[in-house]
Amino acid sequence: MLKRPSSRRRSNHSEVNVNLVPMLDALVTMISFLMYTMAFLSLTMVESPLPMVSSEENQQQLKEPPLQLTLTVNENDLLIWSPFDRIPQTTIPNTTDKDGNPTPDFLKLHDALLEIKKQFPNETKLVLMPKAYSSYDRIIGLIDASQHLEKTDPVIVVKNKETGVDEPAKTLFSEVVFGNLLGDDK
């Protein structure tokens, strides 16, 4: 509503100073608290169970030989194979990183494993066999490529064992087990 000209003239224009000091105190306290309790090092984990030897009886009970998907790390390439010949062997030659050093081709490995997952959607295990000289960095990279499904990857439908309902797979091969812990390679 418009004010009358006479009342406008009478309006009080005195300057109001807000006391910002308590607010400043509160902000400084909050920033200190946040910085003190903040986790600057954001850790994540990849889980690997200790490999178990299955009994012969168990193996005989299986109707068909298991896939036992195996990833062997060689000096110049990666080899994807199955000891029971359920899949054709795939060799992925190493590529070079940005410094020109040879490194496993994680992208091609991921794509190859994705194709195998499409064939065996309910398979969750992968046996990883790195060489003694493989670095922890490489091993984490290989497990990442074997487990993690990218947002751009095609949807793979798997059957939920508990509910029996079809649902999109959340991981590629979630159970990565080290197959040569006893040290049968150099």
Binding site: T44, V46, E47, L50, D137, I139
Partner: peptide, 27 residues
């Protein structure tokens, strides 16, 4: 990141002998 698998598997083997069954590798 530079630690070799040779050391890592000896650690896992030792842990397995001490009845540790699951390894969580941090990154």
């Amino acid at each position: 990141k530079a630690v070799k698998y040779d050391i890592l598997r000896k650690v896992m083997y030792t842990a397995g002998a001490a009845q540790f069954r699951v390894f969580r590798m941090l990154a």
